[in-house]
């Protein structure tokens, strides 16, 4: 069921997930009338609106329209504000977390190389932001060697997080702490719970679908939504994912289609990364529980002998 409407205020709105970087998209602010109609659509469909901002300043007129409905703001974090931690946003998106401080959740888009070299910065950030969402921008390039490095990094970060928990803090790092709290899948939701309205007045499965091919829309404001094969965005129609318990997996619909050509099928790399996170979360949960009662209502995370559920397909019923 649809719950969220992402409104890209500009063609150069910040990339906040696996979406390719702005690059050469060219500017193009959403016309004010389109914005009004988008908000009206969101109200009529009972959707929670998330505005994604460009770096540039928006006029007062826009600000007024934006404020006409309850919403969240997703903005990029300018370097100048890294250490100040104050800004009018509900989610900050950044390419660097060095010395970061914030009062709202931070999305850090990074490639694997940068991530592998950033253990100390992540540890520091965990004490200075309420939540850190790491988004890998090159998932499809991971090799066996990279998986090993990722596993080691997660293991090292888990030790730091355990220490923080023992000190009475509750840091949030999507890669490790989300799975401890979840009892069912909590993924990207594009095309199922979330759709995107682009500046051209058309709907898309997610921002990446718009940036990749503007003709790949799923309806427009004039004629409404028209999601073909809508069921394929749902978990029950994803043969690999519906058998999986790496509940924190991003399950990026756009990356699915890019790597396997099907929106309902994740790549091997996506599955292995999600399972390395899952297994490290399991270890973390077990270790925190050694210090006392922790999440007593939460079931143990089972030990498993695979990293890619695809390899277990012969055992599915």
């Amino acid at each position: 069921m649809l719950q969220y409407l992402i409104i890209l205020l500009d063609k150069e709105s910040v990339s906040f997930c696996s979406t390719p970087p702005k690059g050469e998209r060219g500017g193009g602010l959403m016309p004010l009338e389109t914005l009004r109609q988008g908000i009206r659509f969101g109200m009529m469909e009972n959707l929670m609106i998330q505005y994604v901002y460009p770096d540039k300043e928006l006029s007062k007129e826009y600000a007024e329209v934006i404020e006409s409905i309850d919403h969240s703001k997703i903005k990029s974090l300018p370097q100048s504000l890294l250490k100040e931690g104050r800004m009018d946003a509900d989610v900050w998106v950044t390419e660097s977390i060095k010395d970061i401080k914030a009062e709202v959740p931070v999305v850090w888009r990074t490639d694997k190389q940068n991530l592998f070299n950033s253990e100390a910065d992540i540890v520091c950030a965990l004490e200075n932001v309420p939540r850190l969402n790491v988004v890998l921008t090159d998932v499809e390039t991971f090799t066996d060697e990279d998986f090993e490095k990722y596993k080691q990094l997660l293991s090292a970060l888990a030790k730091h997080i355990e220490k923080l928990y023992v000190e009475g803090k509750a840091p949030q790092l999507n890669l490790l702490t989300d799975r401890m709290m979840l009892q069912k899948m909590n993924n990207c939701g594009a095309g199922d719970t979330t759709i995107t309205l682009a500046p051209n007045g058309k709907f898309y499965v997610c921002p990446a679908f718009f940036y990749e091919d503007e003709s790949d829309s799923i309806g427009d404001l004039e004629n409404g939504l028209d999601i073909k094969n809508k069921q394929l965005y749902k978990l029950e129609y994803a043969p690999i994912c519906r058998h999986c318990d790496a509940y924190q997996c991003k399950r990026c619909i756009w990356l699915n289609r890019k790597t396997t050509l099907e929106v309902n099928t994740p790549s091997h790399e996506q599955c292995v990364l999600a399972h390395l996170e899952r297994n490290a979360s399991r270890e973390l949960l077990n270790n925190i529980r050694k210090h006392g009662t922790f999440l007593p209502e939460q079931e143990d995370i089972k030990e498993i002998d695979y990293l890619d559920p695809f390899d277990k397909r012969d055992t599915w019923q």
């Binding site: 499809e140 043969p239 690999i240 790597t259 396997t260 099928t265 790549s267 695809f310 397909r313």
Partner: peptide, 15 residues
Amino acid sequence: DKNKLRPFLTLDRIT
């Protein structure tokens, strides 16, 4: 490209 084979090898009748 084994990723492109995954949808074929996980297809079932009902889905």
